[in-house]
Simulated scan of single mutants.
Amino acid sequence: MKVFIQSVNFNADADLLKFVEKKVEGLTKFHDKIVDAEVFLKVQNTSDKENKISELKINIPGHELVVKKEAKSFEEGVSLGVDSLKRQLRKTKEKSRDTLTL
């Protein structure tokens, strides 16, 4: 699976990029037909502590799953997003399995 990472309004360091790639690669355990993943890391210019936005988009045949999380750090946001995508991927896989058995 290809993982595309874009950082908006800042330069992401190598450790953050490795962390994001490793987390997103782990989603292949939950769905075997993932085409690619796009991750957008954005910093909002607000006084809030939770100003880091992590947006994850997973492309699978026939579907595009998108999750957007705001957190204090990108690591936390990506972890929350990946957990959410795991649930979505399980649901999507179960639905496709159900339609095949009908």
Rank of each mutant, 00 (worst) to 15 (best):
H31Y: 14
S73L: 14
L85S: 02
K18S: 12
T101D: 08
V35M: 04
N45F: 08
N9A: 11
M1Q: 05
D48K: 15
R87C: 03
R97N: 15
E76T: 11
K52R: 14
D48N: 15
M1F: 04
K68E: 12
T101V: 13
I5L: 05
L65Y: 02
V3M: 10
G26L: 06
K93I: 02
V67Y: 00
K57Y: 09
K95G: 07
N45I: 00
K52Q: 09
L102S: 14
M1E: 01
K86P: 08
L85P: 07
I58L: 03
L100M: 12
D32H: 15
K18P: 05
S54I: 02
S7V: 11
E75W: 04
L85Q: 03
K49Q: 10
E70D: 14
S73V: 14
K95H: 11
P61N: 01
M1R: 05
I60N: 00
G77L: 10
D15H: 11
K49A: 13
T28P: 06
A71M: 01
R97E: 15
L100A: 15
K29T: 04
I58A: 01
N45V: 00
T92S: 11
V43S: 03
V82L: 06
V35C: 02
Q44L: 15
F19S: 03
K86Y: 06
D98K: 13
I58Q: 01
H31E: 11
V20K: 06
D83E: 12
R90C: 06
S84Y: 02
L89W: 11
K91R: 15
S96W: 00
T99Q: 14
F74V: 12
L16M: 10
L65A: 01
E21C: 03
F30D: 07
F4D: 13
H31W: 10
G81D: 02
V67N: 07
G26E: 05
V43F: 03
S84K: 10
M1N: 03
D98P: 04
V43W: 01
L102R: 14
R87E: 09
A71G: 04
D48L: 12
E94W: 02
L65G: 00
L27V: 08
I58D: 06
K69N: 06
E50T: 13
H31R: 13
S54D: 04
T92A: 10
L27A: 09
S47Q: 11
P61F: 00
H31T: 00
T28M: 09
I60Q: 00
S7A: 08
K68C: 04
I34E: 01
D48P: 14
E55R: 00
R90H: 15
T99G: 04
Q6R: 06
Q88D: 10
K72P: 08
K33F: 00
K86A: 08
A14E: 13
L80Y: 09
V24K: 10
K29I: 02
K95F: 02
L27Y: 07
F30T: 02
T46W: 09
A37F: 05
S79M: 13
K95V: 08
E25V: 04
N51Q: 12
S73I: 13
L89M: 09
K49G: 09
T101I: 11
K69L: 01
K52D: 05
F10Q: 12
N11Q: 08
L27S: 03
E55I: 00
K68I: 12
I34D: 01
V8Q: 12
P61E: 01
N59A: 10
I60L: 00
T28Y: 07
S73M: 15
V66P: 01
K2F: 07
F30Q: 04
S47R: 12
E21H: 06
K52I: 07
N11K: 11
F4R: 07
